[in-house]
Design a protein around this nucleic acid. Structure first.
Length: 902
RNA sequence: GGGUUGGUAGUCUAGUCCGGUUAUGACACCUCCUUGACAUGGAGGAGGCCGGCGGUUCAAAUCCGCCCCAACCCA
């Protein structure tokens, strides 16, 4: 039985431990689960190398609201947890922690070290997440590097390869010279950087034959007169790419420079000649409007290379150093080469101007290094041919909130590259592929052998099936980490290859498709998208019924939290000061999808609500001590009791809808005010006067329901109260009926269907409210005795309640009689919804006439401004005047007269 | 540069899709009150040109156009 003050510091960790120890939220692996009622959640696994931040706290808490609600309201819930330790983040962490370099180890050896290092971090992370009280099933966890997941990941590769969805191609790819690996489009970001624009003079080389072909006298004159001196200017931020220059482009609408088209240009310092070509992709606004095309400066260069069949002149190598093409600059780093080339251009008189600018460059998001475009051999997953289908499967999901679908839509529509999945790194999940040393035939591992590492394992064949050669080269690239993290639904469902049946199977087919995928809005474009694509290709099914997109946590001033600004709020500090349930209250405080600020006020409000719930529970306990009646005779319930239970029924309906729609903020605020205002302030205050079975039953029934309704939100305090007050008793509606069951495993309340005169209840509470206000305004204590009160409203059945709580000595109810008051008409209110459309612009005249009291009331009708308004088109505004003894109080439809001599 | 979302009392927020004349609630603020749990409580009060300008309409926080500010996504 609850007593004293609520002590979250003691209570919350106790329940967190018990939930884990007793496996409260375990998914029943062995018992069959009804696929129609199971609720399965697939969460994006966090990187464990960092510590818990507010974004985690917020995200996990939202997931937990859904998990706890669905568990009570629906059926069995599957809520797993994953650790993403297959990536460069954990690779770097391991290197730092052990002071080693991954290059010095064999791949499997290094990965073993990674897992050792990550294990400690995972343990810490697990503790932190368990301290949030989220109802994860800790028996269902996975690491994205573990062998089982490696197998799933390689199976995925092999399946897509078999389907013909993957190909290996030597083509321009985005390359990070610092990390020395290819990367995909999503791993780059824009960075504002200081740079210089260099205006460089390019000499025109007139080809005699073509020059004469122009047949134009003026051109010929220019040709002969200025041949040596004729130059044009190219502006570039990357002069180190001069040796890679393969063409010069002019816009077809650029009349001024049109005469250059068809000629050749000589590249300064390097002396090779390149064609001058017209193409509408030239940006005429930038620099001189004439641009050079290099191998490769940007994506435009790649398009030009492909469309115009240009030469390949690779001047920068995989580590960012100059190649032999750069002649005397060979071996210099591209940055050094830039300075040297600029100096030499200047000396040669070819540098016309150099000015400082800032521009955006594409950098690798991990290391901030500007990316290059290199021609390398890489593996790709084909996507561009199916973007329409991928749009459709995105549309098939339910999006909470709906508006987030447009992000997905724009991302898919804007795709420019197939998905590059090979990475030149030494840790990660290996490609299960070898190549014939003779003919380069691709040899893919057998599904039954997976996982394999070609660096340590042998290929599945002794001789090349194409040419019979018996030597093989292992693929030493690893898979992009998203190639694995995009498989979490399949990992969770236990997807595998059944060699005997020769088909893919699932250990838990009932989980797939998953009911919910929660995640932040920042990863829609890659993580969610890639997951949809891969799971769809493997199963022909959209992997998720619904996706719930949460926003980002901002600081108190709505600024983005950042370490450099110093406005980062640490969960640890918050949890030291506030109960976990208070952070849960805060997390429910905004519409899902919106970014929202950290608000200490919300945490305090949460604390207050927890305390109110605790204190009200104590009062319920003392007003209706055990044993309380489980099922009183229906006729015994008083009007007030029926009214409360009926109101609670509607609240349950409303709340259930809101939670189903993931409208946590409205759910939270609605339930809070119903509990606080209607139950505590109205019903409980009145019930203090009561000492009967009906009241005891009503108090306990309502209270038990409130605990359940609050349980998804305030997980700890409701569990504590449930065990204090109810866990010993048998839950009549709970089939499990376990005496020690968690409240979180009980059934969500169904409406009781109690009949009640809702209007009478509303009138009665209005009467109480108006009397309370009278006392307040007259500075009377709320328990001050009132001599006589007359009520002109039908509050029959509530008399004792009103007299009891308001301490009225003599209450008279006039259910039908009009109040003994004079009414004075003070004006006319129009019903604009009817009058507006009906009378249109005559409304102005009607209003003007009403303002001047120029109207006539005729029975139910109103004559004004030449028109006749019907009864339902207007209402008469009156004030009541009372000339008798006592004081007139009124609210809504009730009139109360108080006579008090005191 | 393009797109998306948001801008409502001091602060946070509901309402905007589907227009209706008194714009919701909380926190903070002011006044009063010890009701059988809670003063960390209760009753009341004040506080708003609904980002700006224009348009549509009898009527606009709500629909349309332009602009400003912020965040995010994509170049």
């Amino acid at each position: 039985m609850p007593s004293g003050e609520y002590d979250p510091d003691a209570v919350e960790p106790r329940w967190q431990r018990r939930w884990v120890d007793e496996e409260t939220y375990a998914y029943p692996d062995d018992d069959p689960v009804d696929p129609n009622t199971v609720f399965s959640i697939d969460t994006p696994p966090p990187t464990v190398s960092g510590s818990l931040h507010m974004g985690h706290l917020y995200g996990f808490t939202l997931q937990d609201f859904v998990a706890r609600f669905e568990r009570m309201n629906g059926g069995t819930t599957f809520f797993p947890f994953g650790y993403d330790d297959n990536g460069i983040a954990s690779e770097r962490l391991t290197e730092d922690e052990l002071d080693i370099r991954h290059q010095d180890f064999e791949r499997r050896e290094f990965q073993a070290k990674c897992r050792e290092v990550c294990a400690d971090y995972e343990e810490q992370f697990t503790e932190n997440v368990q301290a949030l009280g989220v109802s994860v099933d800790w028996d269902h966890t996975y690491q994205t590097i573990e062998p089982r997941v490696q197998r799933v990941s390689q199976l995925s590769f092999v399946d897509l390869y078999d389907q013909g969805r993957e190909y290996r191609e030597k083509a321009p790819a985005i390359w990070c010279p610092e990390c020395e690996t290819a990367i995909s489009q999503v791993e780059t970001e824009d960075d504002e950087q200081d740079s210089h624009f260099h205006d460089i003079a390019f000499p025109v080389v007139r080809d005699e034959a073509t020059g004469a072909n122009g047949g134009d006298a003026a051109a010929e004159a220019a040709d002969t007169a200025d041949e040596a001196a004729e130059t044009f200017t190219i502006s570039t931020t990357r002069p180190e790419l001069l040796p890679a220059c393969v063409a010069v482009f002019v816009h077809p609408d650029d009349e001024e420079n049109q005469q250059l088209v068809g000629e050749s240009a000589e590249v300064p310092l390097f002396g090779h000649e390149v064609p001058i070509i017209a193409d509408e992709r030239v940006d005429m606004e930038t620099g001189s409007g004439i641009v050079m095309c290099c191998t490769f400066g940007d994506q435009n260069d790649i398009e030009w290379y492909q469309v115009h069949d240009l030469d390949l002149r690779v001047a920068i190598d995989e580590s960012g150093h100059m190649t032999a093409v750069a002649e005397e600059y060979e071996g210099l780093h591209s940055g050094e080469a830039r300075e040297a080339i600029v100096a030499d251009l200047d000396e040669a008189g070819a540098l016309e101007e150099r000015r400082a600018i800032t521009h955006t460059v594409n950098v690798h998001e991990r290391c901030g290094t500007s990316v290059e475009f290199l021609v390398t051999e890489q593996w790709y997953i084909q996507m561009l041919d199916k973007t329409d289908e991928y749009l459709d499967i995105g549309r098939e999901m339910e999006w909470s909130p709906e508006k987030m679908f447009t992000r997905y839509e724009h991302w898919v529509e804007g795709l420019q590259w197939d998905w590059l999945i090979s990475r030149q790194r030494s840790s990660g999940i290996p490609f299960p592929v070898w190549y014939c040393a003779e003919c380069d035939e691709e040899i893919v591992a057998e599904k039954t052998d997976l996982p394999v590492d070609p660096l340590s394992d042998d290929p599945p064949v002794d001789a090349c099936p194409a040419c019979g050669h018996d030597e093989f080269v292992p693929e030493d690239d690893v898979l992009d980490t998203w190639a694995t993290s995009s498989l979490t639904p399949l990992i969770n469902a236990g997807w595998d290859w059944d060699a005997e049946a020769e088909e893919f199977t699932m250990e838990h087919p009932e989980l797939y498709r998953f009911d919910l995928r929660p995640q932040g809005h920042d990863i829609i474009s890659f993580w969610l998208f890639h997951t949809l694509v891969k799971c769809y290709e493997h199963t022909d099914e959209v992997p998720f019924e619904e996706t719930m997109i949460n926003g980002h946590v901002l600081d108190e001033n709505r600024e983005k939290m950042s370490k450099s600004v110093g406005n980062v709020v640490e969960p640890e500090a918050v949890l030291e000061e506030f109960p976990v349930d208070a952070t849960r209250y805060w997390a429910a405080g905004t519409a899902v999808g919106d970014d929202f600020p950290f608000k200490e006020k919300d945490l305090r409000a949460g604390e207050k609500l927890i305390r109110k719930l605790w204190n009200a529970s104590k009062l319920v306990e003392s007003l209706a001590p055990e044993p309380f009646p489980a099922e009183p005779d229906d006729g015994d319930l008083r009007e007030l009791d029926r009214w409360l239970l009926a109101e609670l029924d509607s609240e349950i309906d409303r709340l259930t809808d809101l939670l189903e729609n993931r409208e946590f903020s409205k759910a939270r605020d609605g339930l809070r005010s119903f509990f606080w205002n209607t139950f505590c302030d109205d019903y409980l205050e009145i019930a203090k006067q009561r000492d009967d079975d009906a009241a005891a039953y009503t108090l306990r029934t309502a209270h038990r329901r409130f605990l359940k309704l609050f349980a998804p939100l305030l997980a700890h305090v409701t569990e504590e109260l449930w065990h204090d007050m109810y866990a010993d008793a048998v839950e009549p509606n709970d089939a499990a009926g376990g005496a020690t069951d968690s409240i979180h495993l009980t059934d969500w309340p169904e409406p009781l269907g109690v009949d009640a005169d809702r209007d009478a209840g509303a009138a009665a509470t209005a009467v109480v409210g108006v009397i309370r206000k009278y006392k307040s305004e007259n500075q009377l204590p709320l328990n001050a005795e009132l001599d006589a009160v007359e009520v002109y409203a039908d509050v029959r059945g509530f008399e004792a309640d009103i007299t009891g709580v308001m301490h009225v000595a003599d209450l008279t109810v006039h259910p039908d009689a009009d109040a003994p008051v004079e009414t004075v008409i003070t004006g006319i209110d129009l019903d604009y919804a009817t009058v507006g459309p009906k009378y249109g612009d005559q409304v102005g005249d009607i209003e003007a006439a009403l303002a001047q009291d120029d109207y006539e009331i005729d029975g139910d009708e109103l004559h004004v401004a030449g028109v006749t308004l019907l009864a339902d088109e207007f209402s008469i505004e009156k004030t009541r005047q009372y000339r008798g003894d006592g004081e007139l109080l009124e609210a809504d439809d009730v009139v109360v007269i108080v006579n008090n001599d005191a």
